[in-house]
Design a protein around this nucleic acid. Structure first.
Length: 832
RNA sequence: GGGCGGGUGGCGGAACUGGCAGACGCGCCGGACUUAGGAUCCGGUGCCGAAAGGCAUGAGGGUUCGAGCCCCUCCCCGCCCACCA
């Protein structure tokens, strides 16, 4: 065999053989149990970067392991190919997004192939192809029929940078765009909307079953869905028939309500303001309208408001309370009106202090000192407690008070218990070009008519003029716009908006099941076998966007009878970022970008893969490190050299193994323990910890260097170990593994592939130690250790321990008060 | 303000269910082989100390024979959400 490890000369060869043999075709083992391993598909903007190399390497190591474990594995890949970056680039240089995207796909595909990923390439999809997006349109029409899609009139989030409407999930906390960080403003524009809120409770409940998702992701979804239980209560307005409906989660505090506050945009503001206050109110409302949302509601924004002159009546107490408007009350949350209880709400407290409104304590802490009058408080007391000065509801625990008071309000007809959600419906119209055309035709007589199924797809016209000015580009393509009404045949116009590209990624995992199917989005029978996805690998940044949308979409598909289960994916693995060598995010700006392609050319795919897996567990961020990469190349070279050095062992017969004894037996033990450790590191019965699995392999290789075979049984033990090293290496560094495996096995393996071989089993008898090292402590401090047979009892170990010189010295002249014995581990003498 | 993660050598990271802290790798130091070595192989490497020994997992307390791990108080870092009524 070649004396030196030369990855570039061996890697393409194995890639070709896997490809030709169809080694990774899903469905090859129809009678075997299935596993669906999926990584989030890439958005092909420019070339592949290190982040991609990391996700796909993680998924690939797992997929290869599962193949070896005997499963029928589905491990597909495709391209999330529609979207703004390609369109924005087109505005700059005039190249058509389709042309650019297809070129990028070619580059991505080449890079991924060079990394040796075990994708089933026959299932490759690209969402920009009409064969794919026609099914987005098909789903749209179905969902319209089901009432899940509707046309909404109202305020939408308009991204000033992307020049389009975006979804709530795409608006960041500081009112900037998730994609481009430009300010997001409100714009009154009709939008096509998914009624995701109809699934809010179900999406929330489903989270409890996602026990194999990272808790932080399910928590984020839970918070985003934001179920909030409370009550609505109507306050009558004095001298008017109008009622102010407030939403509160703390109806138990209502006897302490000393004023009511409306959002400046609340429809009643104009009606209720008294003549003497009108000028002030109008000025305030106008000022708020001009102030942008960040400034108005951002952290640290001072609370401001004005009195409207009107009064409302607390239906529980009959008390007359002033009605104010204030900046911190948001029209879009709850009812846009709040009852203020300054004693028990911090915002209300600050506002009351500022404007001299009364503060009345109506909740006493369940334990501890009673609260004095409101005026003496330093801050609001917001904990649940016991109701006080609350009329017939006094003396109740907060939770009980809420139940009774809500029931009372309902009985009296001025309120009820209610649930509010943070989740909003998903507006998915985009005033952009590079997306799925929304299959709607506007007819003068029939309104918005869905394109009939047999007329799909509505193909995106290639001749668009893309300007990014906010006008839908499709509106400027007359031959696209002009059509006829499917109902009456009269001239009509097409919808010119396109779909949010999150639609594409909401169901792509199902398209992989039958990617070329032209009669349906996917084959339901195949879905029954392959879904749900068993392991999904991707970045945590998608927690409340993609990962919420695809859970929603799966429920829709469930409702349409296309899939059996409600959740799309059993286990989610979120991987960390690959930063530059300087610890900063890789970026042209810092000049710290390292490309996977370049690294593969320099070190080979196996070294790059090993780096991705060895640097840290999948979920942690890592820094690219040239030194660590050198180290991993060195490791593979070291593996290679030990095979070269131990070539004389290649022919040793297995028959010699049972006689192995002494050091050879020790080597065999190490071999089998390593098999067990690597299997566990690959997720067998726990988390993925590729780093410790590779570390275990390194230890075994170190042991092989230390062992000089002298006899036939020795050589057999070495051979067994070498075969195991090759097999265990195969999920991580598959090319080197194939090469080495074939070298050891020689002619008998010529027509076989390691990638096709079963995972090596370990012998439990060899994994179990027969002699163990037991740590000996005196008063909890380590004073030595003894070797004892694995079954040694306390008396036996104690005798050994007391014979140890260091232990003896520490026990000398002391009284042993107690001896703690942990079998196989430790003995502790407690002395005085 | 709320939620979720974290804090371990010079660095990345190990440590099963409370049982020898620092596996493995990087870096560094030394040795061998060499005309040479930024190759390779071997050895060493938490800190203090000549040693015995002592001290060490963000800080301080507690529980325990024994704590990186459990409990309490606090500090710091990251991510997500946020005047959400």
């Amino acid at each position: 065999m070649n004396e030196r490890y030369e990855p570039l000369s061996i890697e393409p060869r194995w890639q070709k053989r896997w490809e030709e043999a169809g080694t990774f075709r899903a469905g090859r083992r129809p009678t075997a149990e299935k596993r669906y391993v999926l990584e989030m598909f890439p958005y092909p903007s420019g070339a592949m970067h290190m982040g991609h190399a990391r996700v796909y390497t993680i998924g690939d190591a797992l997929a290869r392991f599962l193949w070896a474990r005997g499963y029928d594995v589905l491990h597909p890949i495709g391209y999330d190919a529609l979207g703004l970056p390609a369109e924005n680039a087109a505005i700059k240089d005039g190249r058509h997004p389709a042309e650019r995207t297809r070129e990028n796909i070619v580059s991505f595909r080449a890079d991924m192939k060079r990394l040796g990923y075990s994708f089933d390439w026959e299932r490759e999809i690209a969402t920009c192809e009409p064969e794919y997006y026609r099914w987005n349109q098909w789903f749209f029409v179905k969902m319209l029929e089901q009432g899940i899609v509707y046309r909404r009139q109202g305020k939408a989030n308009w991204c000033t940078g992307c020049a389009t409407v975006i979804a709530n999930e795409q608006v960041m906390a500081d009112n900037t765009c998730e994609r481009c960080s430009s300010p997001v403003v409100e714009k009154v524009i009709p939008e096509w909307t998914f009624r995701i809120t109809a699934f809010a409770q179900d999406l929330l409940d489903g989270l409890d079953g996602l026990t194999e998702w990272p808790e932080r992701i399910t928590t984020m979804q839970r918070n985003w869905i934001g179920r909030s239980e409370g009550a609505e209560v109507d306050f009558a307005v004095e001298g008017s028939t109008e009622r102010i409906k407030v939403f509160t989660t703390r109806v138990d505090t209502i006897f302490g309500c000393t004023y009511v506050v409306l959002a400046p945009e609340h429809p009643l503001v104009a009606k209720l303001s008294t003549a003497d206050r009108r000028a002030d109110v109008q000025a305030f409302v106008q000022r708020m309208a001009k102030t942008d949302a960040i400034e108005r509601t951002g952290e640290g924004a001072p609370k401001e408001g004005v009195f409207t002159g009107a009064h409302a009546v607390n239906p529980f107490t009959g008390a007359r309370v002033p009605v104010w408007i204030a900046n911190f009350v948001l029209a879009e949350y709850g009812t846009g009106a709040v009852m203020s209880v300054p004693a028990h709400d911090q915002r209300d407290f600050e506002f009351a202090r500022k404007y001299g409104l009364p503060i009345e304590v109506v909740i006493q802490p369940a334990a501890g000192e009673r609260l004095g009058p409101g005026a003496s408080l330093e801050k609001a007391s917001t904990e649940d407690g016991v109701t006080d000065r609350s009329g017939p509801f006094s003396g109740l625990a907060s939770a009980e008070a809420r139940r009774r008071m809500s029931a009372f309000a309902k009985e009296q007809g001025f309120g009820d218990a209610t649930v509010r959600w943070h989740l909003r419906d998903w507006g998915f119209s985009r005033q952009r070009y590079w997306g799925t055309p929304i299959p709607i035709i506007y007819c003068e007589d029939h309104g918005a008519v869905p394109v009939p199924e047999q007329d799909l797809p509505v193909v995106l016209p290639p001749q668009a003029i893309i300007t990014g000015t906010g006008e839908p580009p499709l509106a400027k393509v007359p031959e696209f716009v002009a059509t006829t009404c499917p109902r009456c045949g009269k001239p009509a116009r097409r919808e010119t908006e396109t779909m949010d590209t999150f639609v594409d990624s909401s169901w792509y995992y199902a398209r992989y099941l039958s990617p070329k199917d032209d009669g349906q989005p996917f084959d339901a029978a195949l879905a029954k076998r392959w879904l749900p996805v068993d392991v999904y690998v991707g970045g945590p940044e998608h927690a409340v966007m993609h990962l919420l949308y695809f859970r929603f979409w799966h429920r829709v598909m469930h409702q349409l009878g296309l899939v059996q289960e409600k959740e799309p994916c059993k286990r989610l693995v979120t991987q960390g970022i690959v930063n530059g060598p300087d610890g900063r995010k890789m970026s042209k700006r810092w000049g710290n970008v390292v490309s996977p392609g370049g690294m593969v050319e320099k070190f080979g795919a196996d070294t790059v893969r090993l780096f991705m897996l060895f640097a840290a567990p999948p979920e942690k961020d890592i820094d690219w490190s040239d030194e660590q990469v050198d180290g991993l190349f060195r490791f593979l070279s070291r593996v290679w050299r030990i095979f070269v050095a131990r070539q004389p062992c290649f022919a040793a017969p297995d028959a010699a193994l049972p006689q192995a004894a002494g050091d050879a037996l020790e080597l065999r033990r190490r071999t089998h323990r390593t098999i067990k450790k690597v299997s566990e590191a690959l997720g067998e019965g726990g988390d993925l910890k590729f780093n410790t699995g590779i570390a275990a392999l390194m230890e075994l290789v170190n042991a092989l260097y230390a062992f000089e075979p002298k006899s036939e049984p020795d050589r057999a033990a070495v051979r067994e170990s070498l075969v195991a090293v090759a097999a265990l290496l195969s999920p991580f560094a598959p090319h080197a593994a194939e090469e080495l495996w074939h070298e050891v096995l020689g002619a008998p393996a010529r027509d076989r592939l390691l990638a096709d071989e079963p995972w090596p089993p370990f012998d439990p008898a060899l994994v179990a130690a027969d002699v163990v090292t037991i740590a000996i402590q005196v008063n909890g401090k380590l004073r030595g250790d003894v070797q004892a047979p694995v079954g040694a009892g306390e008396a036996e170990v104690r005798a050994l321990a007391e014979a140890e010189e260091r232990v003896k010295a520490h026990l000398a002249g002391k009284t042993i008060r107690k001896v703690v014995f942990v079998p196989k581990r430790l003995m502790n003498f407690v002395v005085g």
